[in-house]
Design a protein around this nucleic acid. Structure first.
Lengths: 179, 179
DNA sequence: CTAACTGTACCGTCCAGACGGTATAGTTAC
DNA sequence: GTAACTATACCGTCTGGACGGTACAGTTAG
């Protein structure tokens, strides 16, 4: 087989980064190609149109989400604590894919919204097994809140320390609820 | 005095609606003018450019937020309960302005982000007076989570009933925390 | 009379996507 | 073993349309 498609992943990574850092509006094909160190023609070789780029990103998101849910189920101190911790922006592949996809959902991209709904439901189910349906809801919304705020920080580690402190506080609140 | 500037408010309302329903990308000047039942020239008579439209929206948001915070302070069953209830999408002027502005923040609009941070801080301060700083954080994140989800529903009353049920659940969780 | 519009024509820029071309790694034929 | 061929992985340029904004002449309501 001929040379490996190194550009494909580079393009996807670049698209993800730009979505996170500058938003959907500025994540143009030209910008993505430039960031990826690839020509625009090369980009379009792998992804015939922008929709294909988005689809690939959502595929990646789904894969990572499945892995994450497995880890969540297996978490030693319970899935709820794992969930709160992992809702903090930690620049993991999952975080990046998730927040990048959030940018698309904001722009009213229907397919993205559907995927989100699916992942959220799975999270909620796992949480309910750990802490029951009511607290699961509370934990789920707190996690969404953390992501909501991560969005506004544009991917930079702004307020990293204070966010980590917030997570500790939320874990404390969770403990109070567990009793 | 000549006729009243009826178009001004119509334009602002239209811009708000389009941001909520179809996102920032599709809220073009042409689309806004059409939705407002106003000519593009008329729109630009009141708002010389798009930035002016945004500024006016943020002004409106700030005004409504101040009113909201006053009501929150005066809420009979505590500001925390008021906050959770008001985080539900209820199509109030405040909700609309808030979610519309969210769309702009998503597109990395700096001024919008700054305004948000200010309002959030005020909320947090009021909440802390009611339930203390720790639970205030939890409540604040839950509220953000509710808004985060409202965003994805695009302003439609999708899942209205289930969201209301969620609010009741969160109020129950709050009660458990109060003790 | 004047503020509050309507309507149209137009400009510059940006962007998604089309297209033609090129380089190189494998594969086949002899 | 090598020449001929094929498929993949790109590059660079161009175009058509949308969008923000300008300009300006005309119309309507108070």
């Amino acid at each position: 087989m001929p040379r490996k498609p190194v550009a494909r992943d580079a393009v996807l990574d670049a698209y993800e980064s730009l979505l996170i850092e500058v938003g959907e509006r500025a994540a143009t094909l030209d910008a993505v190609a430039k960031r990826a160190g690839v020509s625009k023609g090369g980009l379009l070789y792998h992804f015939p149109n922008k929709e294909a780029l988005i689809s690939a990103l959502l595929e990646r998101l789904d894969e990572l989400a499945q892995e994450d849910i497995e880890q969540m189920k297996a978490a030693p101190d319970g899935s709820a604590a794992y969930f709160i911790r992992s809702s903090l922006w930690a620049d993991t592949p999952m975080d990046r894919a998730f927040v990048a996809a959030t940018r698309l959902a904001e722009v009213a991209h229907e397919e993205t919204r559907r995927r989100f709904a699916g992942i959220q439901q799975q999270w909620l189910d796992v949480l309910a097994e750990d802490v029951g349906p009511e607290i699961a809801k509370a934990v789920s919304y707190m996690g969404d809140g953390l992501y909501f705020n991560a969005m506004f920080e544009g991917g930079q580690g702004t307020g990293d320390a204070s966010r980590e402190a917030d997570v500790e506080i939320l874990l404390g609140v969770l403990d109070r609820l567990r009793k």
